[in-house]
Design a binder for these strands. Structure first.
Lengths: 247, 247
DNA sequence: CGCCAAGTTGAAACGCGTCAACCGTAGTGG
DNA sequence: CCACTACGGTTGACGCGTTTCAACTTGGCG
């Protein structure tokens, strides 16, 4: 999964708006792939902001370590996602980022990003729009943390992963690989690992989720979607008309 | 509180980077002030994205109405804030926005925003940076919703308001006016209105917060800051060096 | 004066956290 | 090849923080 595929897939390069130079610029961000091991920390909280990354293989997550000893996972990154845009405009990281499993990332610098912005407003709009979409997902999780019970949070989390994985072709017969531990899921959803386990059992008993180690199957995705009233505009939607004139 | 004051105050126009044209562009966003009444809905969720707003007077909040009948308040907007940037890049609103008390807002269009972007990259960077900072505040709340208890959430919420109000000169002797009802605070923090009341009592008994109707006083702001381990980089920080070369 | 919204307080129920014991699996080294 | 260990997951018992319901108080306002 390359960034180019990802951007095109997100509808940000439609209407033939992506020129050959645009594509070259995007590919230029992926010149320096780096293999990273499971659990490897890409950067710590408060570290200097020196780069961003495109995930090419593997899963990553951003997190905050809290004073009370617990951790809050902010976001899970899948292949094709850009990591670090949250920190754009800051000199220090607001959150750490670590790999969940082993994979490949492609770092690029502030300077490369600015250059891309200057040379292609269309791409700039596309990149900003993907960053905005990531924030929309975060907002969605905030809503779930604030007002929904454990089984709804977990169902929503799994369904969002399902949709995102589907877009990058990582879903097979409603099933996908899920390298997160239950403790990590708990850290993402504001639940204890123990309760995540119980909640999985609950969803299994209702026939909504089956799971064997790292393999998760959603037998009836539509039923899950109804349960969580999933609003997928923030994943699916393309850029609005107003952006066309900007290109 | 004008948007210009707000942007300058946030350090985004430092180093003399704001030209006369920049200032004219900003003021151009505030040409059409509109008086709005308490409780007035500026737009509903899923409405078409046709404008953004600068708040000149009064408080507003963005919210989501949930299927289970409850509401989640996403963000509280104070004078000088830009409303609606969350929806930039979408064709429909991700959240509704309503006024808390009466006030004045200045709407401006997509087109005006694009024009500003094209004519002043420095301002574009500034506006994007303010949007990024708003998202950072949201992320901070997500952390609190996930991993902190009621009294810590409320303390953090009040302290953040305190800092933001201080920036715009709305704090007097550690006190400020707080037009939110306890039900609205609960909707922001994922708590019931009843528990917000109890939690206020708790903070009062500990000498951290006193309150008389809409007037809140933080007798010892530093003690509150310690309690919530407040990380104020996302409110205080100016643009990082990398942006200077972009200007 | 009387009404209504907002806030307070108490009692009971419940969801989730915590602690602890236990199990299965994968990895490790003798 | 088989203990041994470490880790992730499961299950039960119990406690606590928060919700819910309800009654009551207070202040603002027509």
């Amino acid at each position: 999964m390359t960034l180019l595929d990802s951007i095109v897939m997100q509808g940000l390069g439609k209407h033939g708006a992506l020129t050959a130079e645009d594509k070259a610029l995007i590919l230029g961000l992926e010149l320096t792939p780096r293999r990273v091991s499971a659990g490897e920390v890409l950067w710590q909280e408060s570290a200097e902001v020196d780069m961003f990354c495109v995930v090419k293989e593997g899963w990553a997550y951003s997190y905050r370590n809290l004073g009370n000893g617990s951790m809050q996972i902010l976001k899970v990154y899948l292949p094709g996602d850009i990591i670090g845009m949250r920190d754009f405009g800051f000199s220090r990281r607001l959150a750490g980022v670590a790999m969940i499993n082993e994979g490949v990332v492609c770092p690029f610098s502030h300077q490369q990003l600015f250059e891309l912005f200057v040379r292609s407003p269309a791409l700039a709009a596309g990149i900003i729009a993907t960053a905005v979409r990531q924030q929309a997902m975060l907002t969605e999780r905030l809503v779930y943390l604030g007002r929904y019970a454990a089984h709804e949070r977990l169902a929503h989390f799994l369904y969002e992963l399902y949709l995102r994985l589907q877009r990058i072709g990582a879903v097979d017969e409603n099933g996908f690989s899920m390298p997160l531990s239950q403790e990590q899921i708990g850290d993402a959803l504001g639940l204890s690992a123990v309760h995540v386990s119980r909640t999985f059992s609950m969803l299994r008993d209702e026939g909504l989720v089956t799971r064997d180690r790292q393999h998760v199957v959603l037998p009836d995705p539509e039923a899950l979607a109804r349960l969580v009233e999933f609003n997928n505009t923030y994943i699916e939607e393309t850029l609005p008309p107003a952006f066309q004139s900007f290109h």
